[in-house]
Amino acid sequence: MSIKRISGPALSDLLQSLTGLLLVLFVWGHMFFESSILLGKDAMLWVTRMFEGEHIFGQPYPLLVSAVAAAIFALIALHAILALRKFPASAAQYRRFHQHMESMHHADTTLWYVQVVTGFSLFFLASAHVFLVFIQPDNIGPYASSDRIWSGRFWLLYAPLLVCVHLHAGIGIYRLVMKWAPIPAAQTQQVRRRLKIAMWGIIVFFIALGSASLVTYMKIGYDHADRVGERYHGADGRGGV
């Protein structure tokens, strides 16, 4: 079945899920790369260089990072526009949903609300982050990033972003499976229970990983606060960002 034939609401629903899936995969990958700082400044530098294409082209092209940022931003925008269809559209709807959720004490209903709130926040938090990367693609690196986070006080953005993005992504993936996967009726309860455990495991793991990285960046930034602007050139002193 070709995607061209899918149209209208079916396409919207499918695209919302697909963009969500891509964003989640990106975010999870991103987490591993940024947390390379936990392995040391050199590891992070290596990863930064990789994204700038140095390992392929022989020299770094930060514009590549801008290009990725632009693509991610487009995905976020598309995902947000599609998801907005499902948001409460009026104060009355919002009130009814809230009442419903408070009455039901039903985990999946509440989780959806968590997604609405985090999704709404992400539209600003993630956009701000992505925009920054887009306009300053060369401003990424062990010192550059740490200075931004500590001296530039971007940890105030990244801390809530970290929590929001992982709640949103983890819950989103769980919902995505329940929404589309062919789970036999007899196994639904069991599969759901396991998915939920996996979901919370993943959320906790990434928030822990992200927090550790963030603290590490903050620590480097704190130590480097008197030398803001200086780039890290590697333990062997080659190259510098």
Binding site: P9, A10, S12, D13, K86, M104, H106, D108, T109, W112, R175, M178, K179, R192
Partner: peptide, 9 residues
């Protein structure tokens, strides 16, 4: 079906 948000209530 595309209105369903899979809240599973």
């Amino acid at each position: 079906v595309f209105g369903c948000m899979t809240l599973l209530g």
